[in-house]
Write a protein that binds this DNA or RNA. Structure first.
Length: 301
DNA sequence: TGCCAGGCGGACA
DNA sequence: TGTCCGCATGGC
């Protein structure tokens, strides 16, 4: 891939904090699909736009986000594609004022508008990656989940090297579809997870599922129905994917242990909250459930 | 040692 | 329709 010195800028919206978003990305887990450089206060990301691959470095620059294209073919219409990816990743198009107004209505939540000021819903723009990540992370602790993801990505994903460091892309559906279950077992995936990921890969490889197609569903209920047809996708995964990949702000990851733990602290319960109790917390946040979900996760540390 | 992790499908009543 | 169990493994 050719080196470039191209830089593009994106105007930052109101109620946006790059350091808060960076903090959310850097919660002590070892994510192999981006690299945070604390000294330079920037994040490196290998991203794919259609068939074109790039390596980018994103950093804060006054009232703009600075996006350096370190590697890639910067001919033709690359710029808008990269901008769109970063906009989706940081959810830059969202006006958070209505959400902050709602938070300010509640004494036990309003502190979040200061403490996490400008935190955005950090997305996973690639739908295939988001689904595979959910399956990988189901029912295991997060540090082990990130380790499994790293093994899969390092074994089957493409990579580029820059400045002596390797940056990875998530593996292609066509590659994972052709793997045997034993290949996943070698990486310590359970047989069940292997079956799910191969099945999801098949749907993407054969064009039965695309982000565009899911996005064309009439409403959230239709999207959920479509996702729940996929083996390995339950209510938690479907909602997670809709918020992280499809940019839906009206989703709650019911059943999520992190969410349960944060709601338990919020309501001072000393036990797991019931579904009804979680629904009551989210009820006043109609249309902004995903953001409350994210801010509650953030409150875990 | 035993229980729980940012769940899910399938069996069974 | 609701409930229970197995899955795989690490962390505490």
């Amino acid at each position: 891939m050719p080196e470039t010195e191209q830089t593009i800028y994106l105007k930052k919206p109101d109620l946006f904090s790059f350091p808060e978003c960076l903090h959310f990305l850097d919660r002590g887990y070892d994510d192999c699909l981006y690299h945070i450089d604390i000294n330079r206060k920037s994040v490196y990301k290998a991203l794919k736009i259609g068939a074109d691959r790039y390596l980018t470095r994103v950093s804060d620059h006054e009232d703009e986000l600075k996006i350096e294209i370190l590697l890639g073919d910067t001919s033709e219409e690359y710029e808008q594609g990269i901008k769109n990816y970063i906009i989706d990743w940081f959810d830059l198009k969202r006006d958070l004022k209505p959400f902050y107004c709602k938070l300010n209505n509640y004494e036990n939540l309003s502190w979040m508008t200061n403490r996490y000021h400008g935190l955005r819903l950090m997305g996973i723009p690639d739908l295939f990656e988001a689904l595979c990540w959910c399956v990988t992370g189901q029912q295991i602790n997060l540090s082990f989940a990130y380790r499994l993801k790293r093994r899969l990505v390092e074994a089957y994903g493409r990579s580029v090297t820059y400045d002596g460091k390797t940056f990875y892309y998530f593996p292609e559906p066509e590659v994972l579809f052709r793997l045997e279950i034993s290949a996943f077992r070698k990486l310590q995936f359970s047989r069940r997870k292997a079956e799910y990921i191969i099945g999801i890969s098949q749907q993407f490889a054969e064009g039965e599922m695309t982000k565009k197609q899911l996005g064309s569903c009439e409403n959230r209920t239709e999207m959920l129905k479509r996702l729940l047809k996929i083996r390995g996708v339950g209510e938690w995964t479907a909602n997670y994917v809709l918020m992280k990949s499809m940019g839906r702000t009206d989703c709650v990851t019911y059943g999520d242990t992190g969410l349960q733990s944060s709601v338990s602290s919020l309501l001072e319960l000393n036990r797991k909250p019931t579904r009804k109790e979680i629904e009551r917390v989210f009820a006043p946040f109609k249309g902004w459930e995903s953001y409350l979900n994210i801010y509650l996760w953030r409150s875990l540390g």
